[in-house]
Computed example of a mutant assay.
Amino acid sequence: MYGWTPLHYAARFGHVERAKQLLDMDKSIAYVITDKDGKKTALHVAASQGHVGVMKELRSQCPDCWEMVNDKGQNIRHVAVQNENKKAVKFILENSQLSCLINHKAIDGNTPLHLAAATLHSNRLIYDKRADGMVFNKENQTPLDVTTHYENVTLVTQLTLLSLSDRRNLVHKAALLLY
């Protein structure tokens, strides 16, 4: 089904011990992408389901698999945010070695913060000082623009507070709020 490997299924159902056994036998399976299901790795599947135990196992045995992207150019942070999986988002944000994933743009130009704004989710990502609130996607929208589009006043307020803590260009952001 979908070209999944046994590791994909272990990730889907959160079977940490099975994932460990499979990786002990052959670490290369962590890098296998599906051929019919969005070019996902087992790590993408684990992140979408919030199976942090499997994510930890993959991180410890295959740390460079964290940089792989799916067919949309999304890393695991995109996937966790898009699936509104708070446990996975929290785990990723707490790992400083993964900070390179925070502002990664997918093919559509969206960062995980754009997706958080669009899904009205993930306050932890919005408050993370490493997340660039002024990055533009291919539609020339910042995460604040995306939030305003979805008319979520609470999230707009949170992004505005982030700009204060980051001391970013407040005039530009205030202008965005007015229009």
Rank of each mutant, 00 (worst) to 15 (best):
N83D: 09
Q141D: 04
D132T: 02
K86E: 15
N110M: 09
S163V: 11
V171F: 13
A42L: 02
N83P: 01
K129Y: 06
V45P: 00
I102L: 15
M55Y: 02
E151A: 13
V146M: 01
C62R: 05
F136P: 00
K90C: 08
Y2F: 12
D71F: 05
D166S: 13
D37K: 07
R12M: 11
M1L: 11
E17K: 13
L93F: 04
P143L: 06
L176T: 11
H51P: 01
E151R: 14
I33W: 06
L93V: 02
W4Q: 05
A19N: 01
L98I: 02
E57H: 00
A116E: 02
K39C: 11
A131C: 07
D71M: 05
L144N: 01
T41P: 06
L162Y: 14
S96I: 14
M25T: 09
E57C: 09
L161G: 09
D24P: 03
I107R: 08
L164G: 06
E94S: 15
W66D: 01
A47D: 02
M1E: 14
L58M: 12
N110V: 04
S163L: 11
L155H: 03
M1H: 09
F136H: 08
P112C: 01
A30F: 00
N110D: 09
P63N: 01
T157Q: 15
K90I: 03
L155Y: 07
N137S: 03
Q74D: 04
E94H: 10
D132N: 14
A46V: 07
Q74W: 02
L23A: 05
M55N: 05
Q74M: 11
Q97G: 12
Q61V: 10
T111A: 08
L101C: 05
I29F: 04
R124E: 14
C100S: 15
I126Y: 03
A117P: 04
I102H: 08
G53W: 01
L101K: 03
A175P: 00
A131G: 08
E67A: 12
A42S: 12
V16K: 13
Q61H: 07
D24M: 10
S60E: 15
T5N: 10
Q141P: 02
P112Q: 00
M134A: 14
Y31H: 10
E84I: 09
Q61W: 04
N152Y: 04
N152C: 13
V69E: 13
L115F: 07
R77K: 10
R18T: 15
D64T: 14
H149F: 15
E57Y: 01
S48N: 03
E84A: 10
K138V: 09
T41A: 09
T157Y: 13
L113D: 00
F91K: 06
V16W: 02
C65V: 04
D64A: 09
H121V: 05
D145S: 08
L170V: 05
V146Y: 01
L23W: 00
W4F: 07
V32T: 12
L159C: 08
G133P: 03
A116D: 03
A116C: 06
L155E: 00
L7S: 05
D128G: 05
H114C: 07
H51E: 01
I107H: 08
E94I: 06
